[in-house]
Simulated assay, not measured.
Amino acid sequence: MGASLGSKSRGGRSRRAPMAEINVTPLVDVMLVLLIIFMVTAPLLVAGVPVDLPESRAGALDQQAKPVQIALDKDGALFIDDQPVSDAALPQRLSAIAAEPAPPEGRRIYLRADKALDYGRVMRVMGELNRAGLNHVALVSVGEEKT
């Protein structure tokens, strides 16, 4: 009473059927490693002016077009899209931005100001934005800290 485990051909040699499965384990391993690499490096790709933003409970804005970013660092230095701008040159730069063709949803300005700055300094920049006709200003903050 014997059982045959493999198919035998005439010469007594066993013949194996071709394997029709693909081993996906190495593919999954490589993809997980790549995912971890991208998750670690993605936050490092954001370059800009280091600003200590205040906290807020407001939600994020849904924006399709790239907005103009204006930043005030802790020393009060002014930057438009990461390029330093003097106070005297600010009105001309804002007028040039306002003269550019705007997207259909309107031109959005993101204003990032360090929380240690004087309120009057931020309001002077907002006044210049208003004078240039750039009225869609969003104040950028970080999310509320969980305690």
Rank of each mutant, 00 (worst) to 15 (best):
M1E: 13
S4Q: 14
S7M: 12
G11Y: 05
G12R: 07
R13C: 04
R16H: 13
R16K: 12
A17N: 12
I22E: 07
P26K: 02
V28C: 09
D29Q: 11
M31C: 12
L32Y: 00
L34A: 14
I37F: 06
V40K: 05
L44Q: 07
L45P: 00
A47M: 03
A47V: 03
V49S: 04
V51D: 03
L53F: 02
P54H: 01
G59W: 00
D62E: 06
Q64T: 04
K66T: 08
I70D: 04
I70G: 04
A71M: 01
A71D: 03
A71K: 05
D73Q: 06
D75V: 01
G76A: 06
L78F: 04
L78S: 03
F79P: 07
F79M: 10
F79T: 04
D81H: 04
Q83N: 11
A88C: 04
A88E: 15
P91C: 10
Q92T: 12
Q92W: 00
A96W: 01
A96G: 12
E100A: 14
P101I: 01
A102F: 05
P103R: 03
G106S: 07
R107E: 10
R108E: 08
Y110F: 15
D114S: 11
A116W: 02
A116C: 06
R121S: 13
M123K: 12
R124G: 12
V125S: 11
M126K: 15
E128M: 13
R131C: 08
R131A: 14
G133V: 11
N135P: 08
V137N: 11
V140W: 14
V140F: 14
V140M: 15
V142A: 15
V142N: 15
G143V: 08
E144I: 08
K146F: 10
K146D: 14
